[in-house]
């Protein structure tokens, strides 16, 4: 086992352990912090795969923005104390276990397909990524370039990209609608009240 492999197993092990703590730690703040540790481990794994852009984005978006908001909400609602774990729904444990098995099965099927299809069916995303790597300019081999990812996104994957942004917009509007205060018009007398969603 060489040094790179050892590093991989260390970081991967740490990420699994921290993921376990996210679920099993009784304190919500600690759970959220273990999730941050997990994200950083994933970023390091991306780095070992020479995907520097992905690693940076992982830290900026997940660890830096989303988890800070999670912590913000936990602190704002004062959920800091330890809670007894109790099931909100009957049969929650079995349903959870079953769903976890389904996800595991789907992931292994996907992984098997990618690994076995690499030789026989060359036009897959993994193959495309590999092609991009071969086109890297001299002196920068092995790095997936930022410009490459950008032009792939805006040429070959434009529709999924734009659809994702529309999805985010829908989520944003939904959140605003749910969170907005009642407008003063609604407290006016019955006759003047306008219907609002």
């Amino acid at each position: 086992m060489n040094v790179a492999n050892l590093g991989f197993f260390l970081v991967a092990g740490l990420s699994i352990v921290s993921a376990g703590f996210v679920i099993f730690h009784p304190n919500p703040v600690r759970s959220a912090l273990f999730l941050v540790v997990n994200f950083i481990c994933l970023a390091i794994l991306y780095l070992t795969l020479n995907a520097q852009l992905l690693a940076a984005l992982q830290v900026i978006v997940y660890a830096g923005a989303i988890m800070v908001l999670f912590l913000f909400v936990i602190m704002l609602l004062n959920l800091g104390g330890e809670r007894a774990r109790e099931d909100a729904l009957a049969g929650q444990k079995f349903a959870g276990g079953f769903l976890a098995l389904v996800v595991l099965g789907a992931l292994s099927v996907g992984l098997y397909q990618v690994v076995s299809a690499k030789e026989t069916r060359p036009v897959t995303d993994a193959w495309r990524l590999e092609q991009m790597r071969f086109q890297a300019p001299p002196g920068k081999e092995g790095e997936v370039q930022i410009a490459q990812i950008g032009s792939e996104l805006f040429r070959n994957y434009l529709y999924p990209f734009e659809l994702t942004s529309v999805l985010l917009l829908v989520g944003l509007i939904g959140a605003v609608l749910l969170a907005k205060r009642r407008l003063p018009e609604q407290s006016q007398p019955e006759g003047q009240r306008r219907d609002r969603p």
């Binding site: 703040v29 520097q52 852009l53 900026i60 923005a65 800070v68 930022i146």
Partner: peptide, 25 residues
């Protein structure tokens, strides 16, 4: 001189907030 230098800066500055949040909590 990282090829993604400016993103590295953004990533680290976004982690800096945890110090303040953790200290506060």
């Amino acid at each position: 001189d990282l090829p993604v230098g400016i993103l590295y800066v953004l990533a680290l500055t976004s982690l800096g907030v945890y110090g303040v949040v953790l200290a506060g909590w």
